[in-house]
Design a protein around this nucleic acid. Sequence first.
DNA 1: GTAGGGTTAG
Length: 535
Amino acid sequence: MAIPSVSLHPPSDLLLLQLCNNIHEVRQLHAKFLVSGLINHHPVVPRRLIQAYVATSHVEPAISIFETSIHSPDAFLYNTIIRGLINDSSPDRAILFYKKLLLEGTVIPDNFTHTFVLKACSHLQEDEAVSVGRQVHCWVIKAGGELGSYVHSSLTHLYATLGFMDEAEHVLGESFEENVDAVNAIISGYCRCGRVDEARAKFEGMTDRNVASWSAMITGYTRNEMDLEALSLFQDMSVSDPELIPNESMVVSLLTACGRLGALPQGRWIHKYIERAGMKISTNVSTALIDMYAKCGNIQCSYEIFQHIASRDRDIVLWGTIISGLAKHGQAAKSLELFDEMIGHGIQPNGVIFTAVLSACNHSGLIEKGQECFNQMAKVFRIVPSIEHYGCMVDMLARAGRLAEAEELIASMPEKANSVIWGAFLSSCRMHNDVRRGSWAFQRLMEVEPLSGDRWKLGELMFGNAGRKMEATKIRKLMHETEIETTVGRSFIEVAGVVHEFVAGDIMHNKAEEIYRMCRSIHRTMRKSFMNMTS
DNA sequence: GTAGGGTTAG
């Protein structure tokens, strides 16, 4: 059979192929090439088809063309397939293709191959990732510094992410010029394993820093709960390089820090800052803002932000943040309403969402609703209740004096109850004067957490209240002899720039009356401005 | 002709 004459000239369909932006068009042209036989007779056709399929996120047909119509693939084609598999979230298959390339030995992997392969590694099991990483490392050494800075920083990043800091440092040393991205990866690697000082030393030693360098260090501080350091480094950045615009992860980290510190003014300032800088406020940033405002006590503001986000941009973490924020602020009804709304939008709740929902029920004493949710969780949504969920339920039932049911629930748990559960149960036993169950709980608590003074104290109070002086005295004596310490619940409140401290149960504070009055007035003002905002 | 960095809800 004669080769169609068109094969002598690049057919116009080949040009069309490059313009395709959906799979149907690619399929149509593919069919035409099959019919005309061009697919096996024009060398460029299968290449272009592979590229077109990968570009429209369909890697399977690309692979089958690769295997049937390509007889001597080059690095570019391997790269295309490997990249397609990574985008298709099949990193293990991407690695298989890399191994095939190495095995056949006719193609030399280039910078792109290495970069893609290293990216695939970060999604693999640790041992497999290290093993492939080492293979790439061999190529880096063989190339003697000729490999691009992308490969160097990707390899450094892989080792650093896996916590292989010595190897990461070693690769860094193999690059000729200073590789900012690689140093950034090292900074974040050190922070990831808690070696913050070493990270800071690397950061200080850099001659050239980019936004990612500052971001890696700031994010590293927040990761290690060094929230003040994070905010202070951000201040350093604004001073030393006012032109630098923070990236998204930096903003999220800063807001996390503000939330944990309860630093509302700083949080607000960052909010204004990102608005002024014209940064796009992604779902992640919105989530961090909502979380920050909720943790700083301004749930109205959280809710306001939440409502301005289009439903299609609301992911499960965003829903979780506002649901648990409302729950913590005692607004159970609103929290449950949003939970239903979320399900109405077709988002499947997960365990974290249910913890928030159950804690909302718990804090508002909605026991029947709580039980309904707890049952629904397993039966409708197929979520296995975790120890936190059991904890919520036990606390809820026990608080309400339904100690027998709480006890039953503890017995039905698949794993052993922890100190949180026994502690909650014990404190309810004390509250409801059930010394029989209480002493049982106290014994279990002493098994799982013998070293907490607060637990001993709780036991002492329970026995004391119930008139069991002997046990109470015995515990008191033991605490005295072992010098075990109890902690004090404290809370802080800032009024007009002055921080006041309260000890739990303490109403003797010399400014108490005044602060209560001011709080009421602030609350009224906040309500008013909230009404203005929403109307 | 192909190329990221990190984060958030209990």
